[in-house]
């Protein structure tokens, strides 16, 4: 499924994820094969219950596949232990969530600086890098605001700044516009387009085909299986 001949960021080979509930085995992802090249903006499109969340958890190294190979940024990650996965998340992945998932009662600046704390970056440096990331997203005047003092669109921009601050190989966005009004949603999508034009690799997971058109390539996910999609 490779569209580009450049080096891949994501390589999934026959990846399956089967949930064992004790009595029945639920296959959430079946023999998925996917390659995302460096600099690509890829959408994974599927309705709820399609295996979309499982896909996001595997790609984001929050969960391990039951079988198959997953190579992220040149490193096999399917057999890493919890600490190994945490290290990969810390270095290689920036998450953007539907419900923003900012730390409550914590300023925008501290929120964006937190991933750098887990990388062991000194406080002075991480605050200045966090401030730069927030300023790039037009939030230079909201540094000391806590999430509860920001609008949905602003919170999502803080979320994107937090995903960008570590300069990760992959930005993984799970329904980033799902909780936003259409104006803020469009704003967020244009931010992703800008990031793509600057060479970032982005995987956008959504149920909304209109949102998916922001990407330059897409796959459908249905009953745990992937199909190439045609984006108008």
């Amino acid at each position: 499924m490779s569209a580009h001949a450049v080096e891949p960021i994501i390589e999934l080979e026959n990846v399956s994820r089967i949930y064992d509930t004790g009595r029945v085995q639920v296959p959430a992802l079946v023999d998925a094969n996917l390659t995302v090249a460096k600099g690509e903006f890829m959408a994974i499109i599927g309705p709820s219950g399609s295996g979309k969340s499982t896909m996001m958890n595997i790609l984001g190294c929050l969960d391990r596949p039951t079988s198959g190979r997953y190579i992220l940024d040149g490193q096999p990650v399917d057999e890493l232990d919890d600490n190994g996965l945490a290290y990969v998340r810390s270095r290689s992945i920036g998450f953007v969530f539907q419900s923003y998932n900012l730390l409550p009662r914590t300023s925008a600046l501290e929120n964006v600086a937190t991933p750098l704390m887990y990388q062991g970056v000194g406080r002075k440096e991480r605050l200045s890098r966090a401030q730069a990331a927030l300023e790039r997203l037009g939030l230079g005047d909201r540094l000391d605001h806590e999430p509860s003092e920001l609008s949905g669109g602003q919170q999502q921009r803080v979320g994107i700044a937090r995903a960008l601050v570590t300069e990760p190989a992959l930005i993984l966005a799970d329904e980033p516009t799902g909780n936003l009004d259409s104006h803020s949603g469009a704003e967020v999508l244009s931010i992703f387009k800008d990031l793509h034009s600057l060479g970032r690799t982005i995987v956008l997971i959504t149920h909304d085909i209109d949102v998916a058109t922001a990407a330059d390539r897409g796959v459908h996910i249905r009953d745990g299986q992937l199909y190439e999609a045609v984006l108008s």
């Binding site: 600490n83 998340r89 810390s90 998932n101 730390l103």
Partner: peptide, 16 residues
């Protein structure tokens, strides 16, 4: 619990 999930997603190890 959710805060712990967020922290882990953005790179915290169990020992952090």
């Amino acid at each position: 619990t959710r805060e712990i999930g967020i922290r882990k997603a953005i790179g915290a190890r169990g020992r952090d």
